[in-house]
Design a protein around this nucleic acid. Structure first.
Lengths: 145, 145
DNA sequence: AAAATAATTGACAGAAATAGTCGGGTATGA
DNA sequence: TCATACCCGACTATTTCTGTCAATTATTTT
C-alpha cells in the first residue's frame, strides 16, 4: 500500500503556492527551489493540475501559476485524483470489469470499502486547512529559534 | 494509491482456506486452481504467511495448510502486513527519517492520518467475518440459479 | 519589432518495485 | 520407497515511478 510521490509533491507544491499569497502568480521554478523538487518533474504535475482545473497558468514574464479557485474549495481528493490516474485500480477485476475469482468473492467488498474510507478521509480536508496548519508550524519555528 | 496483488491474493487464498473446513489441511495446488492464481506465486505468499504465524504447514501426502488460529482472531491488517513489507513507505522522508521538505511540512500530518485510517479499517475486519460474507454470496448464487 | 521570460509538450531513460517462473530440495504418509 | 506437497532461492519479464532533455509557443517588456 503506497501513495505515489506524485500525490505528495502535488500537495506540497499547492500548499507552497497558497502559502505566500500576494495574489501574484508564482513560477514553478520558485516552488521547485523552495520545495526541493525537480523543476521538470513539477512541470508535469502542473500540466495535470491545470487540466484538472485546480490551477490556472499565466504565461510570460512575471507569470506563473495561481489557484483556479479559493483554497477552501480545493479538497485533497481532487488533488490526488487529478495527479494520479487511477485511485485503487483494484482487485481481481478483469479488464472488462468482471470478477476473475474462481469462487464467489467477498474480498472485493473489502477493497471497495477501503477505497471509500480513503476517499472519505481525503475529501474531508481542504487545501486551506492544510495551509493553515503549515502557517502555524512556521510560526512555531520562529518562536522556538 | 494502490494495493498490491500480493495482499489481494493472500486475502482471497485465506478466505478460500477457511471456507471449506473439514479440519483437513488444503494444498495450495487446490487453492491455486480454485482461485486461478499461479501455483508458484502462491507458494511464495504462503511461506510469508507461515513465517508470520497466520498459517501452519503440514508436509507430506495429504498435507497442506491450515489456519494457525481461529479465523476470528485473524485480522486483515495482519494479513496485509505479513505479505507486504512496508505499509505506507511514506512522504518526504529522508532515509534517516527526517523531513526533506524545504518549508515546514504540514502534509506529513495528512499522510500520517491517512495511514491511520487505513490501518483502523483493516484492523476492524476479521477473516471470519469475511468468510461469512463469502458464504452468504455463495448461497445466493445457488438460490438464483 | 526584438529580446527575454516562462509556460507547454512530447519523447525518452534509468531505477525500482511488482508479478510471475523455474528448478531443485526436503519431509512425510501410505 | 514412492508419490505428494511443502520449502527455498535464484532468475526474468513487465510495469510503474521518477526524472531528464530538447524544442516550441505565448506573452510582456524594452
Amino acid at each position: 500500500m503506497r501513495m505515489s510521490t506524485k500525490a505528495q509533491y502535488a500537495v506540497r507544491a499547492l500548499v507552497s503556492l497558497n502559502l505566500d499569497n500576494g495574489g501574484l502568480p508564482i513560477s514553478i521554478k520558485v516552488i521547485s527551489e523552495r520545495e526541493n523538487i525537480s523543476l521538470n518533474y513539477l512541470e508535469q504535475l502542473f500540466v495535470k493540475l491545470r487540466r484538472g482545473g485546480i490551477v490556472n497558468s499565466i504565461r510570460g514574464p512575471g507569470g506563473g501559476y495561481v489557484l483556479a479557485r479559493p483554497a477552501a474549495d480545493i479538497r485533497m481528493d481532487q488533488i490526488v485524483d487529478t495527479v494520479e490516474e487511477a485511485m485503487m485500480p483494484l482487485s481481481c477485476m478483469n479488464t472488462d470489469g468482471s470478477c476473475g475469482c474462481g469462487t464467489a468473492c467477498a474480498t472485493q467488498l473489502v477493497w471497495h470499502g477501503l477505497g471509500q474510507q480513503i476517499k472519505n478521509f481525503l475529501t474531508s480536508i481542504t487545501l486551506e486547512e492544510l495551509t493553515n496548519d503549515c502557517r502555524r508550524q512556521l510560526k512555531n519555528q520562529v518562536v522556538n529559534s
